[in-house]
Amino acid sequence: MKTLFSILAAVTSFAALAQPEIPYREYEPLDQYEPHVSGDLKLSGSYQYWKDPAKLDYRMAGNPDENWKLNWKFMDPPFNQAVHGGHFALDRGEKLFKQLDAHHRFAVCLGAKKGKLKHLRAGYPRWRDDLKHVAGLEEAIEYCGARQGRVLQNGSYDNSAISLYLASLGNGQPIAIDVAKGPLKEAFERGRHLFHTRVGAFNFSCSSCHTHNIGKRLRGNVITTPYGDAAHYPVYRTQFVLQSLHLRFAECNLDTRTQPLLPGSQPYTDLEVFMTALTNGYPISVPAERDW
């Protein structure tokens, strides 16, 4: 009997050794990303047209061949800065935040130093000792809300509304996350890898469109750069009410026939770190509106 077990164990361990650790996954690496918005100059080159929001050439917005170069996605027509659904969410977010922060516990939990909220949004995603991983602002809001018994699911309207309110306090602040070392560097590298990993029925990676085919048309849409995209989330969208960046990833997945993941999942957070690092140096601009 003992011999039989030994043979079985040997066969099993051999089978385990024979199994490849990492399954075959198609991956097209690209190493030249810079964790700053100006890195776009080496990718699409469109940064020169949108780097200074005060000096946008609005004539380009009306030209279908040039519109994409503005990368001004948060002013999709019919944009009206004064009136859109994002403002309602902002009001809701302010009300909820003030309820939760009545004893200043909520802001402290989110990581505001000396009650200063202005820099919160620009410094997320960040490592959180309590969660023992890198988390986005929406995950922190869900976590800190739960500590007070409040359900604020990642991606829900109320969660995104609070995130939007906190972002609005830092409007104009440049995004600033440091991915040069530690867990954020690791998350950035994982995010970069995911950005190039092919998935879904069409075997697309994010980069299939957003690095290799920038400026080309998918019928009525023109593909834009991944740089400078994270500074206007959560965003008001007429079709999706209020959309966090993770829900945008889920929508991208569905559009390319890929099974989406849950908001707050680690792959989406790693992609968020990657996308946010590519927005470093670009000012927060909320509440924003995107088409449908």
Binding site: Q153, V199, A250, P260, L261
Partner: peptide
């Protein structure tokens, strides 16, 4: 698919028009 419900702290989930579980995910 996730559905955002105005003034709610919860997401609603509705079956998507296609089942995509056959193909690879980012997980």
């Amino acid at each position: 698919a996730a559905k955002v419900i105005v003034n709610s702290g919860r997401l609603a989930w509705t079956p998507y028009k296609r089942d995509l579980g056959r193909w690879l995910t980012l997980s």
